[in-house]
Simulated scan of single mutants.
Amino acid sequence: MTYSIEIFLAAHQAMTTGVDMIPRSANDKEYFAQDWFAARVAALGLPLHPQGRVGDPDLWVGDDTQAPVEGYEIKSMALRNGRPARKDYDSRSINPAEPKDDRDCFLVFLLYTGSGGKPRPIHSLCIAHRDLINTDQGGAASHIEEKIEGFGSYGDGAIRSRKQHRFPSPFTLDPTGLGRCRLILPAEWAPADARLVQVGTLERSIAYTRLDAYSIDLGGNTRPTPHAAPRLDAGQVRRFQVFEQP
């Protein structure tokens, strides 16, 4: 059981009928997308629990009295010259692929036109299960922000290790999704819903090594040295079904 199908259908209707995202101000870089998505969930009458600016994920949908409970992390990006401004996206908090409390999480990715305080029409929308981005559990949560003391000539300075993760956007993994509204779910879910039509399949192969750590030489202009270890699940293929509303 998942709310993602009903939420996807509501998002599809809003996108295709021209319900734009409305910035709170000309400098709003993130809230307009969260507000738009939250309005779609609220209209369905589903329990909605925003987590705040630094919460992870942005929203929980559902509660303990109404299963399931699912997380939704919302990301937005401008469309420039007919293409996304970037091929990847940054996440300062636990990455949206990270499961939390054994609950499913989804990445909601919106491409928009417009700028400043004006309404921002949605060009492309994708709701993807976290596993499309990353299947690892625990890595991002244990990677904490740290302050390393003892820096500088007097030893009273510090280096701030600022956690940030970067992953390819769903539109990099599924470039035919540009200009579309799509839902991407694990193939094993195999939802049987007449309101959905499968338009494709995506496959992702697990890497052969896992980044365990990295080291940085402060004495020169050198790049970090990654330290990797073999993965027990190396080479396994994860398959995903891509859906649209007909």
Score class of each variant (00 low, 15 high):
residue 200 G to A: 05
residue 151 F to D: 01
residue 192 A to Q: 15
residue 141 A to V: 14
residue 191 P to L: 02
residue 163 K to A: 12
residue 195 R to P: 11
residue 159 I to D: 01
residue 194 A to S: 15
residue 159 I to G: 01
residue 154 Y to W: 03
residue 182 R to D: 00
residue 143 H to S: 13
residue 145 E to C: 01
residue 148 I to W: 03
residue 197 V to I: 11
residue 173 L to D: 10
residue 198 Q to P: 02
residue 145 E to H: 00
residue 192 A to V: 15
residue 158 A to W: 04
residue 162 R to T: 05
residue 184 I to P: 05
residue 173 L to C: 05
residue 181 C to R: 08
residue 195 R to V: 06
residue 155 G to Y: 08
residue 152 G to Y: 06
residue 159 I to W: 06
residue 163 K to H: 01
residue 157 G to T: 05
residue 153 S to L: 15
residue 162 R to Q: 07
residue 173 L to Y: 10
residue 164 Q to N: 10
residue 145 E to Y: 00
residue 174 D to Y: 15
residue 199 V to N: 06
residue 175 P to S: 12
residue 187 A to W: 05
residue 142 S to K: 14
residue 154 Y to I: 11
residue 196 L to S: 05
residue 155 G to K: 08
residue 175 P to D: 08
residue 155 G to P: 13
residue 179 G to E: 09
residue 164 Q to C: 09
residue 201 T to L: 08
residue 147 K to W: 00
residue 199 V to R: 14
residue 175 P to I: 11
residue 148 I to K: 04
residue 181 C to A: 15
residue 169 S to F: 02
residue 164 Q to M: 09
residue 158 A to E: 04
residue 154 Y to P: 01
residue 158 A to R: 02
residue 196 L to Y: 01
residue 174 D to Q: 12
residue 190 A to F: 07
residue 185 L to V: 05
residue 166 R to T: 14
residue 196 L to G: 04
residue 161 S to H: 01
residue 182 R to Q: 09
residue 193 D to E: 14
residue 183 L to K: 05
residue 151 F to Y: 13
residue 160 R to C: 01
residue 175 P to M: 11
residue 181 C to N: 08
residue 159 I to V: 12
residue 183 L to E: 02
residue 154 Y to E: 14
residue 149 E to P: 00
residue 152 G to Q: 12
residue 165 H to N: 07
residue 187 A to Y: 09
residue 159 I to Q: 00
residue 147 K to N: 02
residue 188 E to H: 12
residue 168 P to R: 09
residue 157 G to I: 04
residue 160 R to A: 11
residue 157 G to R: 03
residue 157 G to W: 03
residue 160 R to W: 03
residue 143 H to V: 04
residue 189 W to K: 12
residue 180 R to G: 03
residue 170 P to Q: 09
residue 168 P to W: 08
